[in-house]
Structure formats: C-alpha cells, structure tokens
Simulated scan of single mutants.
Amino acid sequence: MILASLIIGLLTAYYFGLRHGITAALVAFGLFLVEAVVPGLTVPIYVAIGVGVVALLVIGPRRAPSAEAGKVRRVLGAVWGQIKRQLRRRRS
C-alpha cells in the first residue's frame, strides 16, 4: 500500500506538479489505511483508486505541463537515466 501510494504520487507529480503529487499520495495512503481497517470498503476503495488512476492517465497527457511539473519530469528523467546506466554497467 505504501508503494502504490508512492507510485500514484509520482505519476500525479509527473503530470500536475509536486504539490498535487504529494496530495494524491497522501489521499491514496489514507484510502488504503481505511481499506485495511474496514474490510467492507475494500472493493469500493480499490474501484475509486483505479478510476482515479485511469482518469489521471487519460487527462494528464492532454494537459499542458506546468513549470513545476516540468521540474519533476527533469528530475525523474535524470533518475531513470541513472538507473539505466547502472543496469548497463552490471550487464557488461
């Protein structure tokens, strides 16, 4: 549940900026906690999170990136590039 919240937060930050990404991660984590405590809400909460992620994936690419989202994209791109370089080094 922590990893899923972080992924949702990073995806939101990628499209909408860091502030919105942190908010999305905290909301997702809160929903996962409620789901863990109240078993009857498991399916509705998973459906709500799934619908939110799909909406994010549909709306995000169509929206013009903000300046803050551009910074997040550059940082994530640099991290991804570093990961790829490390994987290439380990293969050879």
Results as ranks from 00 to 15, higher is better:
Ser92Met: 08
Leu56Asn: 04
Gly81Val: 09
Ala13Asn: 06
Ile45Asp: 12
Ile7Arg: 10
Ile59Ala: 02
Ile83Met: 11
Glu68Gly: 12
Leu57Arg: 02
Arg73Ile: 02
Leu31Val: 01
Ala13Ile: 01
Ala48Ser: 09
Leu3Lys: 14
Val72Tyr: 07
Leu18Gln: 11
Ile2Glu: 15
Ser66Pro: 05
Met1Lys: 06
Ile2Ser: 11
Val51Trp: 05
Leu6Thr: 07
Trp80Ile: 15
Arg88Met: 10
Ala28Tyr: 10
Met1Phe: 09
Val37Met: 09
Glu35Met: 04
Arg73Cys: 05
Val54Ala: 10
Leu41Ser: 01
Ile49Asp: 11
Glu68Ile: 00
Thr12His: 03
Arg19Gln: 14
Ala28Arg: 10
Val34Gly: 07
Arg90His: 14
Leu33Gly: 09
Ala25Cys: 03
Ala28Ser: 15
Arg91Asp: 15
Arg73Met: 09
Gly30Val: 04
Gly77Tyr: 11
Leu11Trp: 05
Tyr15Arg: 04
Met1Cys: 09
Val27Pro: 08
Arg19Pro: 02
Glu68Leu: 03
Gln82Val: 13
Leu18Ile: 02
Arg85Ile: 07
Pro61Trp: 11
Ala36Phe: 13
Val58Lys: 00
Gly17Glu: 07
Ala13Ser: 14
Gln86Lys: 12
Thr42Gly: 10
Phe29Ser: 03
Ala69Pro: 03
Ile2Gly: 12
Gly81Ser: 13
Val27Gln: 09
